[in-house]
Design a protein around this nucleic acid. Sequence first.
DNA 1: CTTGACCGAGACAGACTGTATCATGGTTGT
DNA 2: ACAACCATGATACAGTCTGTCTCGGTCAAG
Lengths: 194, 194
Amino acid sequence: MVDPGSSMNPQVERTHRVMLDAARELLAEHGPAAVTHLRVSETSGVARATVYRHWPDRVDILLDLLRSGADLHFTPPPEDLPLAQRVTGLLEKLAAALNGNSGQILTAMIGLAEWDDDVFAALGRMRAFGPRLLRDLLAGGLADGSLTAATDIDVLMDALIGPLFLKRLLHHDEITDAYVGDLVDTVLAPHLIG
Amino acid sequence: MVDPGSSMNPQVERTHRVMLDAARELLAEHGPAAVTHLRVSETSGVARATVYRHWPDRVDILLDLLRSGADLHFTPPPEDLPLAQRVTGLLEKLAAALNGNSGQILTAMIGLAEWDDDVFAALGRMRAFGPRLLRDLLAGGLADGSLTAATDIDVLMDALIGPLFLKRLLHHDEITDAYVGDLVDTVLAPHLIG
DNA sequence: CTTGACCGAGACAGACTGTATCATGGTTGT
DNA sequence: ACAACCATGATACAGTCTGTCTCGGTCAAG
């Protein structure tokens, strides 16, 4: 099997990228069921045998797509802003990711993860990045007294993130900054001090 | 094509039910990709041609499963309870549905709905039932003064339902009544009067 | 009992899957 | 520049799945 990660062979890297682009296009246009060796081969122009060489199993293509395509590790917002604004900024970044390509990849992966343990594990690894930052933010707010002492930050976090997923996955709505603002006003604001 | 809905033929009804049970088992065990005419035929013992006669297209089986399997229209809670308890009761019922078979069907459908308009439409029809009741509840609370006047009940509703979906779909966690209680305390309680 | 509708069984072409082989062309180190 | 190496392209192959059709048997209703 070919290893495009550690290998510096430009031929391998180029072929891999071309195929992965085709796979991403197939996923976006026709869903995960359409991401097969044959269709990746046809779409990319790369020989079918080569697709099998890079990813022996069909799900490997999707996992590769998940690793390469979902950029959900955000940079922490500036610390001099008040908590509400920092949370809002972070949620807006998450919303933007969900609105775009990452949302589509996530949707596919959530569907697959229900029955494929490998996909679920990969999803779990990725899931850790975004929310962790939010959790740190809320924990900091609890520590410095910005949040009321009795606040359950885990539930609060779910109440902030959950609606974004709900809107994107179930309702297929674009998540606007205005919506994020309303969400923070409704969910977070009552727990703020000052 | 066979019409088991209006037809009173017990033969048709029996065959249809046997096949649908097999399809449900396949979905639960191996996911929507496994729900094919061939495998439904093998699992149910019904001839392959018959499966095609009932559902010409593969997605029709899944849509039928969605209609028959996801019971998400709940009965309204008793009106003499305070708003918080009525909301809690409703959310607990939704949580129970998500924990059970309906959650699995929903997961599959959400994945398919991203790329199949028929599934999305069917999902939309079903989605209307549960939340509408919750929305009526919150609207009533706004009208009778249980909720603060400035409350955005649509966002509030998302903040109550979203976390349940998040936990079930992304985290694969069982949704406990305790969690629902914490959620209501964190999200709804600050907006209650009295 | 007769009629009509449904089911089971089998056949069929066409497409897809997974693997193997071998020649070709690009890549790397000397 | 050259040779050794390695990935790729092309092709072939059996096995499986898909979608459709036909025909004889079976069931339910009038």
